[in-house]
């Protein structure tokens, strides 16, 4: 009880004493953790570089402007590659994501004990590993180039799309599914007539959303050799050609803004 009697007066407290103690202990532990972590970072930091950072930043800025506009001509092809990596990668991810989502959703999985955990493990593995790491892995296996980028984007997107899709499937209205089952329809027909129409808008929205994210991610895949505009970024940073870097940033920013606008419009039209 938050109300305590002390010398005949009722004292109101927000929490009971034990709970209050626990809350304080929680805050204390959290603060200690953060402070300890911070010390770990401080120990690994060259502080004279940090004190120098404002000067470095100003210097960097001075070297970055003006951007090298003439460099744009060499960027169109890598930019085209970047867009293709994102688009083809997203398309390639949609194909396996649908069956995985059906296996992972509680109301469509054939077995909640065996199949569902396996599908969930696939999803979490795909999601845990950033597309840049997938790209690192694929460049090392199938060699540098656009294909490694496409596969990396696809592998990362499978988990994302499948997770959101299976959550959408779990939230559908059960009544039509029951009605379709009652007509004597087979399993596949129940999925296509009872479930698919209900999750189709969500699926389209998720796909476009992921495409938008993939555009952003594919701009940096070139850093590890997986094709696209990131390759140019890597080589420009390596030779400290900062005006070129600025130009690349401008182009990436424009692409991202445009893709986000497209994605927002399409999603708005669907929902």
């Amino acid at each position: 009880m938050p109300v305590r009697h002390a010398a005949g007066v009722r004292v109101w407290q927000r929490r009971a004493r034990r709970r209050q103690l626990l809350v304080w202990l929680g805050w204390l532990a959290g603060t200690l953790l953060i402070v300890a972590s911070w010390q770990g970072i401080a120990a690994n930091t060259m502080w004279n570089f940090v004190w120098d950072a404002p000067a470095q930043g100003a210097d960097l800025l001075a070297r970055m402007v003006p951007p090298r506009w003439a460099y744009t001509g060499r960027l169109w092809r890598p930019l085209w590659d970047t867009i293709n990596i994102a688009t083809l990668g997203t398309l390639a991810a949609l194909v396996p994501a649908v069956p995985i989502a059906l296996l992972a959703a509680r109301n469509t999985t054939p077995s909640a004990v065996l199949v569902r955990p396996a599908a969930l493990l696939l999803i979490v593995s795909s999601r845990s590993i950033n597309s840049l790491i997938w790209a690192l892995l694929l460049v090392s296996i199938i060699g540098p180039g656009v294909l490694a980028g496409i596969v990396a984007i696809a592998l990362r997107s499978i988990g994302f799309v499948a997770k959101l899709l299976y959550e959408a499937i779990e939230e559908i209205d059960r009544a039509p599914v029951e009605a379709i089952t009652a007509t004597g329809a087979g399993r596949a027909q129940v999925v296509t007539f009872g479930i698919a129409p209900q999750v189709l808008p969500a699926f389209a929205g998720i796909s476009v959303f992921r495409w938008d994210i993939n555009i952003r991610e594919s701009t940096v895949l070139g850093l590890v050799g997986a094709g696209g505009i990131g390759l140019e970024l890597q080589s420009s940073v390596n030779v400290l050609a900062w005006p070129q870097v600025t130009m690349i940033f401008i182009l990436i920013l424009a692409t991202v803004v445009v893709s986000e606008a497209i994605s927002a419009r399409v999603r708005h039209a669907i929902i």
Binding site: A42, T45, V50, Q56, L132, T219, V220, L253, V257
Partner: peptide, 23 residues
């Protein structure tokens, strides 16, 4: 809009290599 890796490149250029740029 700025991809994490791009921000990281800039911060590394400003603050030097190491976890601080990452943080």
């Amino acid at each position: 809009t700025l991809q994490e890796v791009i921000v990281a490149i800039l911060f590394v250029a400003m603050f030097g290599f190491g976890p601080l740029a990452g943080v």
